[in-house]
Computed example of a mutant assay.
Amino acid sequence: MPRYALITGASSGIGLALAEALARRGRNLILVARQRDALESIACELTQRFGVEVLFRVCDLGEPMQLSGLLHELGQGERQIDLLINNAGVGTSGPFLDQDWGREQQLIEVNILALSRLCHALGNAMALQGGGQILNVASVAGFQPGAWMSNYYASKAYVLHFSEGLREELKSRGIKVSVLCPGPTRTAFFRGAQMDVSRLEDSKLMMGAEELALFTVKALEKNRAIIIPGWRNRLLALSPRLAPRWLVRKLSAAINKPFAGR
């Protein structure tokens, strides 16, 4: 039975970079995102460049019925998924009470509920087939609270802790679990979250998606538990543990507020 890596949020940014890095290593792929045209183009390009099979499925993970349909299709198929990369994510910024609740709910649906459901469904499939690997994409934001992006930071804290817990639970079933915690990355995320990060464009804090993907794939091969690309990002993840919580809250709020969308 052919084996595949399934990547959500694969039409751009980190997801696309991870898809290319894996295809370069000869991995067959199933790409999931909302944009059919982009997915079709990416699938054709990766197939031609690397000679791998690249399938795609159009799915809005924020819509539970669409996710149910995707999982049903995957469950009925004969393709074995031995690597799940939960990369899809939504971001919002600005005062929480001023946000449209529909957008905040979508963030929770995608960042937390869809990710957990995919881990549950495909994790069970991996257990039956004798093993596999899961990579959940969190953020250095998951190590601290983040005023002006409170819902987003909290969602990434969930992903971080959920992934660490699963890693211990699933070892005995032959399933490896890792969590990726990138810092600021050159993707369309900031535009989607309505954040103005133009001042960071040339900053050394901003990492390219291709560089991040290469680091991540190498770390996955070594079965790293928590993957934090770049020493600056590792420092960002470590610093909240060294300072009192009241100071972490205030510093995070002071850093986030100038970039908030409102």
Score class of each variant (00 low, 15 high):
57 R>Y: 10
31 L>A: 05
31 L>T: 01
26 G>H: 07
81 I>V: 15
64 P>K: 02
78 E>D: 06
84 L>I: 01
40 E>R: 00
59 C>Q: 00
28 N>S: 11
54 V>P: 07
32 V>E: 00
45 E>A: 15
43 A>D: 06
71 L>F: 03
68 S>H: 10
84 L>T: 02
71 L>G: 08
75 G>T: 04
19 A>R: 01
75 G>F: 05
61 L>Y: 02
57 R>G: 08
83 L>S: 11
45 E>G: 13
44 C>M: 12
53 E>F: 09
40 E>A: 11
23 A>Y: 04
20 E>P: 13
80 Q>A: 15
56 F>S: 02
28 N>D: 02
68 S>T: 07
50 F>I: 09
85 I>V: 15
76 Q>R: 09
28 N>A: 07
77 G>S: 01
67 L>I: 08
37 D>I: 09
70 L>H: 02
38 A>L: 14
76 Q>T: 14
21 A>V: 08
76 Q>I: 10
35 Q>T: 15
37 D>G: 11
21 A>D: 03
78 E>I: 01
66 Q>W: 09
63 E>Q: 13
24 R>K: 14
36 R>E: 08
68 S>Q: 10
46 L>E: 04
79 R>N: 08
52 V>N: 00
52 V>D: 00
45 E>L: 15
50 F>K: 05
21 A>S: 14
73 E>Y: 09
50 F>E: 02
25 R>S: 14
62 G>V: 00
59 C>A: 08
48 Q>F: 09
47 T>L: 04
27 R>W: 14
71 L>V: 06
65 M>K: 15
52 V>C: 04
73 E>V: 09
34 R>C: 04
65 M>C: 13
21 A>K: 00
66 Q>R: 07
84 L>G: 03
74 L>C: 13
46 L>T: 06
52 V>L: 05
31 L>H: 10
45 E>M: 14
72 H>W: 11
37 D>Q: 14
33 A>V: 05
36 R>T: 06
82 D>R: 02
51 G>P: 12
25 R>N: 12
34 R>T: 07
39 L>R: 02
71 L>R: 00
83 L>V: 09
71 L>P: 05
41 S>H: 07
28 N>Q: 03
63 E>H: 10
82 D>F: 10
38 A>M: 12
24 R>G: 12
24 R>M: 14
51 G>I: 10
23 A>G: 15
66 Q>Y: 05
49 R>L: 09
37 D>A: 13
